[in-house]
């Protein structure tokens, strides 16, 4: 059941936020915090950096609310685009550090009840994280936005500032890359582990 603040549009909440309504800001923040944070986290692989990026996104919204134009797209898309720009800026600043070290941070797996399954899930999520880390940032952002954040192709195109055809191409290539990297896990759970033990 949609409650009162769910019915408020982002644009009206932005107007209220601009006029100093803290409750409106909180609503907006709670609505968009997690998607923005998750996107930044999956791009950077670091919770600390993702926190900074999310903070900066909301800060820019607070400082310059006029930059968000509801006619050009949703607030979610605006925040994703802001997060993307900040992430790419970080990539440019310290490409090696981000690609090499931060994505090595321990992956968070979906936690099943049994311990063995938990271990398997952790290993699997680690492999997924590694496979994503090996992709180029442009392919990764499309994969993250489409597969995890469930944005449409048109929305992704507006977020990354390109056309739908390019998004489709990047998505297709990204998927191919992931299929290649995760082939043992796609063909059968634990396939890669079996291969490893065979070698040993």
């Amino acid at each position: 059941m949609p409650d009162a603040w769910d019915r408020d549009s982002d644009a009206s909440l932005m107007e209220r936020t601009r006029s100093g309504d803290e409750a409106a800001l909180l609503q907006l923040y709670q609505r968009h915090r997690d998607p923005t944070f998750h996107f930044a986290y999956r791009m950077l692989g670091s919770a600390e950096q993702a926190e900074d990026v999310t903070h900066d996104c909301f800060l820019s919204l607070i400082r310059s609310p006029g930059r968000f134009d509801p006619r050009r797209g949703s607030l979610r898309a605006y925040l994703y685009a802001a997060a993307r720009n900040l992430v790419l800026k970080r990539f440019r600043r310290s490409l090696n550090e981000v690609a090499g070290e931060n994505l090595g941070e321990k992956a968070h797996a979906a936690v099943p009840e049994e311990p063995l399954r938990h271990l398997l899930a952790e290993e699997l999520s680690g492999e997924v994280r590694k496979a994503l880390a090996q992709m180029s940032p442009l392919q990764r952002e499309v994969i993250v936005l489409f597969e995890y954040e469930e944005q449409s192709l048109a929305e992704i195109a507006s977020i990354v500032g390109t056309d739908v055809g390019t998004v489709k191409s990047r998505l297709h290539r990204g998927r191919e890359c992931l299929r290649r990297e995760l082939a043992p896990y796609l063909n059968g759970a634990g396939g890669k582990r079996r291969e490893k033990s065979d070698h040993e």
């Binding site: 699997l124 997924v128 994503l132």
Partner: peptide
């Protein structure tokens, strides 16, 4: 398979 990697809160 991709969804097995979850982002923290």
């Amino acid at each position: 398979l991709l969804r097995t990697w979850q982002a923290p809160d």
